[in-house]
């Protein structure tokens, strides 16, 4: 399981980094989106992966932390997902405005790159 998980992160990171370095704004926004999947999975993986251990305490049993998955990375990633949405929205609007103002979708707003 771990190897699949790690490979998935690798593929997402590779695709994300590749797109991040492209010159077109839409490529960059896609790249950020893929890279944020990778990073979220990575952070989530820092709590180690575990099946059937959702951190929802069984009120009938004695509390035993080893039965549950680590909740801290989960809380962090939950925040990251929502903020990721907000930044995507902001970037999208800036991208559209830049396309309208400069007439190009190059990330520098200037087609005459060296």
């Amino acid at each position: 399981m771990e190897i699949t998980y790690a490979l998935a992160i690798g593929v997402l990171t590779g695709s994300g980094v590749w797109l991040l370095l492209r010159p077109r704004t839409f490529q960059v926004i896609m790249g950020l989106s893929l890279l944020s999947y990778a990073v979220n999975l990575f952070i989530f993986g820092m709590g180690r992966i575990m099946e059937g251990g959702a951190p929802i305490i069984d009120t009938l049993k004695q509390i035993d932390p080893s039965l549950y998955d680590d909740p801290v990375p989960q809380a962090l990633v939950l925040t990251a997902i929502v903020i990721g949405f907000a930044t995507t929205a902001l970037f999208l609007v800036v991208l559209l405005a830049s396309r309208g103002l400069t007439g190009t979708d190059h990330v520098d707003g200037d087609e005459s790159e060296p």
Binding site: A6, G10, G14, S15, V17, L41
Partner: peptide, 14 residues
């Protein structure tokens, strides 16, 4: 660069 980044993050995660 993308390949190196992907491979190393994979390795690190594993």
């Amino acid at each position: 660069l993308a390949l190196v980044a992907g491979a190393s993050l994979s390795a690190l995660s594993y």
